[in-house]
Design a protein around this nucleic acid. Structure first.
Lengths: 228, 228
DNA sequence: GCTTTTTATGAATTTGACTCAATATAAATG
DNA sequence: CATTTATATTGAGTCAAATTCATAAAAAGC
């Protein structure tokens, strides 16, 4: 037991310390915002000296980037889990929208932090990768919808994706400001938007229904005509 | 000449100084971003002493808020002008979307600055008023569309508004990152979205379809009646 | 002109991110 | 296990930049 229970290698120790710093930073940034957050406070919370923080993260901005990256990684797991709970593409989409909006409203500060990270990040900056991973959840979902014949790609995928995430991000802001407004109204509308705009089913169903009825009516009319 | 040309009152002098500081701040913030912008550099550019800046603006953050407010005021004027150039509601909407997206991509830094301002601002913080004024341009436009029978309010106005501005803001970010992508694809799609989602046309088409069927049924009914 | 009030100045203060020489801890070696 | 070597940690010290404030200049009032 002794040998297996306490095999605290040097690496494990450092990893634990890194996690402690990252956790402390997340709390400090969330509570006070980027500017007001003090590196000294983060160090104290993580129970390390101030200088130690700089052994793990080059500077304050890089520490924020790491916190933001972690946030999106956790979010990606949650999103995957939320969508997996459903079978139908549309239900998955609704679940993703609900999940995304709820999390953004809850951890609203991170929207601002993320914008800050994106600001400085270039196209290939690694700090954007976790966000790409998150965005991929939607992309896969939409592609699956296309494969299943539920969606049609009437515009470039990136345009559709920006409509989805853009609407949700902006809405999270107004929902955060106007606490009384109903988040359901947003996601409900957004799924309707997707059905109407990109959905094959409704249009197709309407059309075939119409055609079927008209054909039937024509047959009846012809029969009646023939009889007279 | 002398008396009329130089009636520089104390008030006018101060207002000129305030404008000089604001202009200097806008340039400095744009060029270097909020963190890297130096109050000393702003003071030097405005040709005042460092302490003077603090007579007009409480601190750096408040100076940024003032710059952001001015940005949205100027944007509002531009948006009004851009929409006035058209008669039809849909053309106005397209013009507003084009204008908005173009300006956001051009002065992309201000998207970040605005988020920062919104972060701290509460519901009644005066720094949000200029943004409200800007948003009103869209609201008026949409209402006009409803009045003219072009649009129907199938969802709360704020939901529709968030879809409009959210999509544009998020898209400005991706367009800024991926320079090759086409802004037209966004605004084009967005106007189509509005026609499809909130336009009366679809309903109208459904109506004529329905009328056609009803007419046919009426004919059949008449024939049946005639026979008996 | 002289006094009072308002506005401007920039040196001094303060704050907080970041550095680095000194120290502690762990691994390697014999 | 003692000794050397490598690695990790510390926190006092440096430095840059926001903010303050005693002092000076300018304007207004009389």
């Amino acid at each position: 037991m002794a040998t297996t229970a306490a095999p605290i290698t040097r690496r494990e120790k450092m990893e634990a310390k890194e996690r402690a710093i990252l956790d402390a930073a997340r709390i400090e940034f969330s509570e006070r915002g980027f500017e007001s957050a003090k590196m000294s406070a983060i160090a104290k919370r993580a129970e390390v000296a101030e200088g130690t923080v700089y052994l793990y993260y080059r500077n304050k901005k890089e520490l924020l980037d790491a916190v933001v990256a972690q946030f999106w990684q956790v979010l990606t797991q949650g999103a995957r889990k939320a969508t997996l709970a459903h079978d139908h593409t549309l239900e998955k989409l609704k679940a993703l929208a609900d999940f995304h909006l709820r999390e953004l409203v809850k951890d609203f500060d991170f929207v601002g932090f993320t914008v800050r990270t994106r600001e400085t990040g270039t196209l290939d900056s690694p700090s954007l990768n976790p966000i790409r991973g998150y965005v991929a959840v939607f992309d896969e979902l939409f592609r699956q919808g296309v494969d299943r014949g539920i969606f049609q790609e009437t515009a470039p995928l990136w345009v559709i994706r920006d409509l989805f995430y853009g609407t949700l991000e902006y809405s999270s802001r107004t929902l955060h400001l106007h606490k009384t407004r109903d988040a359901q109204a947003v996601t409900q509308h957004l799924t309707e938007v997707f059905v109407t705009l990109y959905g094959n089913t409704k249009m197709a169903r309407d059309e075939t229904n119409l055609q079927r009825i008209e054909a039937q009516l024509a047959r009846i009319e012809a029969k009646l005509d023939a009889r007279s």
